[in-house]
Amino acid sequence: MTARFKFPHRRSALKALHWSMVPLLIWFILVTPADVLPFGQAAFRIHSLLGLVFVTACLLWTADYLRRGLASRPGPKLPPWARRVHQGMHRALIWGLFGVALTGFLLGLTAPRLFMAGGILPVAPPLDLPRAHDLVGKVHIFEFYLLAALAGAHGLFHSGDTFICVTTR
């Protein structure tokens, strides 16, 4: 008799991915690389390793979306406008996650030296483009905080979807 490994159902895997990203998102909202640098290279490497985990999760989620589309469906009791908001918000979150990963790669590409994610993985070959690096850095930061705001709105939407269902009846 051979043992078979069964992967979890897609929705279960995505829920695990979703909830594992929440503490990472909160961490990156509260802690910047400049905050960890005073604690030494080891602290910076750990912060960078967490970034690598976050980016890997972002890319896995984007790949799943591109392959199979959205996994969630809006609740049947939601009014039509809330269903549209639900699906649009989920798409914006997935593409936003991908965008943060992409601009992170562009940061490494435009850098003056080789960036190593987590101290183990080269991000991109550095092209030493200081003006582009500054611009991409600003876009990356703006995009991340915009994504964080959208994630907060997403949480509020889901915490209030019961309210929306009850008040529209």
Rank of each mutant, 00 (worst) to 15 (best):
E143Q: 13
L93R: 06
F28V: 12
G118W: 01
H86S: 11
A124L: 08
R113I: 14
V85M: 08
A42R: 07
A132G: 06
P23E: 12
F163D: 09
L135I: 13
T167C: 10
H9V: 10
A124I: 09
F105K: 02
H158N: 13
A117E: 02
L114C: 06
A57V: 06
L70G: 00
G118K: 03
A132M: 14
T168I: 04
A34E: 07
I141E: 15
V53Y: 00
V136A: 05
W27E: 04
A149P: 07
M116C: 08
S12Q: 09
A82W: 00
V31S: 02
W19V: 12
F157H: 03
P76C: 02
T110K: 01
A124F: 05
T62K: 07
P76N: 08
P79D: 04
V166E: 14
S48H: 01
E143G: 14
R10D: 08
A63P: 06
A43K: 01
L135D: 03
D35G: 03
D35M: 07
V36Q: 03
L102G: 10
G119T: 03
R4N: 12
H154G: 05
A57T: 12
K6V: 09
P130H: 10
Y65H: 05
L127S: 10
S20N: 11
T162E: 12
R11C: 12
R83W: 06
C165E: 07
P38S: 11
A3H: 07
P80Q: 10
A117D: 15
Q41S: 09
R169D: 04
F54R: 09
D134T: 14
T103P: 02
